[in-house]
Structures are given as C-alpha cells and as structure tokens.
C-alpha cells in the first residue's frame, strides 16, 4: 500500500485535486441556485410550499440512476457529474437556509416590517446576518455529501478520487481501493472540520449579540 503511494503519489494528488475542483465548482453553482430558490421562497408562499417538496423528491433518486438519466442529455463526463451534484445540493442547502430564516424570532420580523423595512432589506440586513450559522451548517452538510457522491461520479468519467477507487475494484487492486476511499474520506473530514470551526467561531462572536 505504501509502495503504491510511493510510486503513484502524483496520480493520487492529481485525483484529489480533481475531486476538490469538482466539489468547489459544485459549491459555487449550488450556492447561486440555492440563493435564487431561497429568495423565491421568501417572496412567494406557493414557492415555499412547492419547491422544498419537489427537491426532496429529486433527492430521493439514487445518484447512479440520476447519472444514467442525464447521460442522454449531457453525455458522459464532468458536466453531467456537476449538474447532478448541484441538483442534489439544492435540497440540503434550501432546507437549512429556510430553517435558519424561519427560526428567527417572529417579533424581530414584525418590528422590522412595522418600521417600513422592505422584504428584501429585511432579508439582507436582518435575516441573513441572524441565520448565518444555519447557512454555514447547510453548506457543510452539502459539501460533505458532494465529496461522497462525486466519488460515484467517476463511473461516468468525471475523474477525481473515484477513478482510483473504481480502477481498484475493476483490477482487484486493494491498494487502489483503500487509497481512493481513504483520501475521499479524508477530504470529507477536512471540509467538515474546517466548516465546523467556522460555525463555532460565528457562535462565539454572536454570543455577545444574541438575546439570551
């Protein structure tokens, strides 16, 4: 196993970087789309009833099936992988974003509205800052899920750590299987740890300004 790393460390690093790249691109696109959905849900009662349900239905589709469904449309490769990952993330992100926004004390929203704060101003100046913890939590869960599902995306030639894992499975090479799984697990743990740290920091800095 150590031999494999010594010989193929460049392959491992390249795969890990590819994986990270997929995760980061997915994150950026997911956030943009989730922001759009969140605003839609804030403004429209119908949207806030329909969209989360719809996204949870999509989320229940197994990832391999989803890849297969999209191949005729977008082909094999990274585009399809990222598309699927972005779609899955919507459920995780929106769920947490809306929970954060709805968790804000009703009296704060009422006071804001009664003072003549518009819904958009309330979102930007009051609701977003007050729910940033829930936002980071949502991003953390979505990123960890992305790391794991992106491994499966290697089955449609998306690259990343899954390539090494699937190669190992095909050629019955335990070193490849272990390194592929180990590195993707490490990546997930690393991202999880970093964002947990960020959450904690926000918690500390907001204890002085949140009501007991």
């Amino acid at each position: 196993m150590i031999d494999y790393m010594a010989k193929h460390y460049d392959d491992l690093i390249r795969a890990a970087l590819e994986h990270l790249q997929i995760v980061l691109i997915t994150l950026l696109l997911s956030l943009a789309l989730a922001a759009f959905f969140t605003i839609l849900c804030v403004y429209s009662k119908t949207a806030s009833r329909m969209i989360p349900g719809l996204l949870s239905m999509i989320y229940s589709i197994p990832s391999l099936a989803m890849f297969a469904l999209l191949i005729p449309l977008t082909g094999l490769g990274r585009t399809t992988a990222i598309l699927v990952l972005v779609i899955y993330n919507q459920y995780l992100l929106l769920q947490n974003f809306l929970a954060g926004l709805n968790g804000i004390d009703k009296s704060i929203s009422e006071a804001a509205m009664g003072m003549g704060v518009t819904p958009m101003q309330a979102l930007v100046k009051i609701k977003l800052p007050l729910s940033r913890k829930a936002f980071i939590a949502g991003i953390r869960i979505a990123m960890v899920a992305t790391v794991s599902i992106a491994t499966i995306a290697a089955s449609i030639n998306a690259g990343g750590l899954g390539t090494i894992l699937f190669d190992g499975l095909r050629t019955m090479n335990p070193a490849k299987i272990i390194w592929g799984s180990l590195l993707s697990a490490l990546l997930a743990l690393l991202i999880d740890g970093l964002l947990r740290f960020a959450e904690k920091r926000l918690d500390h800095s907001s204890t002085s300004c949140s009501l007991p």
Partner: peptide, 28 residues
Amino acid sequence: VKLRRRIGYVIQQIGLFPHMTVGSNIAM
C-alpha cells in the same frame, strides 16, 4: 412601506435586532 416609516411602532416583545448595536437599531 412609506406609510410605516412615518409611523412609530412599539411592540411588547420589543423586537430589537440582536446583531446590531443600540445605536444602529435606533438609526434603522
């Protein structure tokens, strides 16, 4: 919205914005 900005409104739960200082709350 314009109407509300011309009327003062105080509620029992107060509803101060917890992430803003007292000064910023008043300056809203």
